[in-house]
Design a protein around this nucleic acid. Sequence first.
DNA 1: ACGGTAGTAGACCGACCTGTTTACTTTTGG
DNA 2: CCAAAAGTAAACAGGTCGGTCTACTACCGT
Lengths: 205, 205
Amino acid sequence: MTTDTEQPRLTRAARRVLDTASELFYHQGINSVGVDRIAAEAGVTKKTIYDRFGSKDNLVMAYLRARDVRWRVVVERHIDAAPDPRGAVLAVFDSLTEWRATEGDRGCAMINARAEISGPDHPAHALAADQKRWLMGRFAELIESAGLLEVGSETEVKAEVKAEIQDTALELLLLHEGAVVMSDVGQFGNAVAIARKAAGRLLSP
Amino acid sequence: MTTDTEQPRLTRAARRVLDTASELFYHQGINSVGVDRIAAEAGVTKKTIYDRFGSKDNLVMAYLRARDVRWRVVVERHIDAAPDPRGAVLAVFDSLTEWRATEGDRGCAMINARAEISGPDHPAHALAADQKRWLMGRFAELIESAGLLEVGSETEVKAEVKAEIQDTALELLLLHEGAVVMSDVGQFGNAVAIARKAAGRLLSP
DNA sequence: ACGGTAGTAGACCGACCTGTTTACTTTTGG
DNA sequence: CCAAAAGTAAACAGGTCGGTCTACTACCGT
């Protein structure tokens, strides 16, 4: 269920705690799940939790970080399996389909965490920003390596090309995030497929 | 700050409670704000809150419903001011810019509420679904009235045209929701503008 | 002028929250 | 083999939560 090499050393009990907490935090909400319940469902005493993680906040961060790592691995796997950069962009949306089937039917854990955590200084906010900027950066790399936009004269300023790439990458990110959130709110079960289709159209104007 | 004709009768104290709760719920999160704090900041006793709203849950729903109504009014105003259906679709994104400037720098209140409320039977979930389906429906109406897609032979089945309209409407919704959420998470301050641009491109393929 | 409605003030309740502590047992690595 | 690390068990602390209740007062329409 979880990758076993994501963090060097975690006691078996700590592993159970993290797995249980991940399940509960994601599906019930962070604030709705107390450490007592985590301890009970993980078959562990509270002391163990506090010995290993120090605080609930740390446990929350461990949950978010581990999930982020797991997700990026899935995305990269799909990108690597794609035949060409354009296909790789579309493959990101396929990775979302897979991800949702296995680990996500309640939207993005980062966005949800943001909603529950008031303080903007909380590290969860930075982590969320990191994740989204990473995906947009990945999109931008793929677009660039596709050699998209060999437009105009050769004297065309490179800065403009770069800007165009960034814009398109952001468009793809918006479609992706829109699909993540909308797959669960209405009856938009086809959101990911539609997002993929739109992405394809935006790539070849 | 708030529309005054949205609900027939609300005592002045109840009005203050709702306004204060809306501010706090949206910016701090629903679970992070207790009724004691709402009472204190609204200059009201807890008894008044419970006399008027019955429970915190009811107050939360009143907050979400009022905000939803307020938002739809803004969207409709922008749609009405647009010269043509195509412009109206783009105007929805302009309405988002205005909305964000006045009432929203922490994402979508519905989505955030969903993240905080575990039970899928909670009426907030239905309300969120309603809001999103409404916007998609609005998009679909605009696309249809634009006479988009007078493609192919006149014997083309109408069902297919309808399906295409629904797909495009969903694409626009995804861009919209993506822009709402991403405007606040990274440094994607241009998310709405980019979404608008992409929407325009998706409308004229 | 009066009666109902809306409001204040503030104590109170039980449940639940994160986090700590003490005392004892199990596991594990050099 | 044995000491350190990891874990169990369970009580405890201090706070906050949503929600109730009593007693008294201000307002407002008829």
